[in-house]
């Protein structure tokens, strides 16, 4: 199964929030609902000896996806072909357990339709391999990459290959969730903060 995910190069991210807005337009999200957000981490230190970075977050495509584990109906599932964690809205009963179970709080609940939703990696654009997710396409920093970690020729693998291990991070996962999303942050930009 491929390991498709986003890779985000924080060295390039300007915190402009364009990824949020392009996602909202692409996925017709109502006010107050998000599939992604950008957090300002810091500044830490004391002016002027400080550092900070922007941390764009969305579904991390966990290898051990708690959302899938807790779902009573199988509505939250891992697509066997793409390997992507998705929600089958027809099966979703809106119990929100997946929202409680997601360790990162990156799922949203549609009050209107009574179903759980989240970043789909823009499957409607990307499934046939022809287009990039909206947030990747429009990203002003050129900071977002989409593809299969297992494919050395994918955009994500190529971007990661440019950096040393010390620059590559994942969100903390104390219960062994193994998120796939990789963040690139060079120590020269700022030091990665473990938020958990």
């Amino acid at each position: 199964m491929p390991r498709k995910c986003l890779v985000i190069n924080i060295d390039r991210c300007t915190g402009c929030d364009s990824c949020i807005v392009s996602c909202k337009f692409e996925n017709h999200l109502p006010l107050g609902t998000f599939y992604n957000r950008v957090m300002q981490v810091g500044p830490t230190g004391t002016y002027p000896n400080i550092e900070r970075y922007n941390l764009p977050v969305q579904c991390q495509q966990c290898t051990h996806a708690r959302c899938v584990e807790v779902c009573p109906t199988g509505a939250s599932y891992r697509d066997s072909e793409s390997g992507i964690v998705l929600v089958n809205e027809a099966k979703c009963i809106g119990c929100q357990y997946c929202l409680y179970a997601c360790p990162y709080g990156v799922r949203s609940f549609s009050e209107e339709d009574g179903v759980a939703r989240k970043c789909t990696l823009c499957q409607h654009l990307t499934a046939d391999g022809k287009a990039d997710p909206a947030c990747v396409h429009n990203c002003p920093g050129g900071a977002r990459f989409y593809g299969d970690l297992d494919d050395p020729d994918s955009a994500v693998s190529r971007e990661l290959a440019k950096y040393d291990d010390e620059c590559i991070h994942t969100l903390g996962a104390p219960e062994g969730e193994e998120p796939l999303t990789r963040y690139i942050l060079s120590p020269s930009t700022a030091h990665w903060k473990e938020l958990v």
């Binding site: 390039r12 900070r52 002003p140 930009t189």
Partner: peptide, 30 residues
């Protein structure tokens, strides 16, 4: 916000050094 942010990112990746003179810790300063 769009074009300059993009071009700046490419510029830094090319290794151009930046000196930022700004009272605020902007994206550029960071």
């Amino acid at each position: 916000a769009a074009y300059a942010a993009r071009a700046n990112a490419e510029m830094r990746e090319r290794g151009i050094k930046t000196i930022v003179i700004d009272p605020y810790y902007t994206e550029e300063a960071a």
